[in-house]
């Protein structure tokens, strides 16, 4: 599983990455968490505001920091 965190490196983006990494750790799953700061990559997904989370190419959220519970839901529904 590949999880991309799209963002400029701002506070909300960093918080989003922490939450995603916590979810991955607590679920004990194998996932590659990648921080993407190239905003052209965000546009390629149609993402126009950040932070955003993309799981295996599927945009899950944009413009908001997700809750831990919500991230776990995305990762376990795969």
């Amino acid at each position: 599983m590949k999880i991309e965190i799209l963002g400029s490196g701002c506070a909300k983006c960093k918080r989003t990455k922490e939450i995603v990494e916590q979810a991955v750790a607590e679920l004990g799953i194998v996932a590659e968490v990648v921080k993407v700061e190239d905003m052209n990559a965000a546009l390629d997904y149609g993402v126009m505001i950040t932070p955003a989370v993309v799981v295996d190419g599927d945009v899950k959220i944009a413009g908001k920091v997700p809750t831990l519970e919500k991230v776990k839901e995305w990762l376990t529904k795969k």
């Binding site: 997904y45 149609g46 993402v47 126009m48 955003a52 944009a62 413009g63």
Partner: peptide, 23 residues
């Protein structure tokens, strides 16, 4: 404001819909 992609709304494009939810 921030210009968004209106056509992506009608096109049901996930990234654009999620971005709109985030406004």
């Amino acid at each position: 404001g921030k210009i968004m992609c209106t056509v992506g709304i009608g096109g049901d494009v996930p990234g654009i819909l999620k971005s709109t939810e985030g406004t």
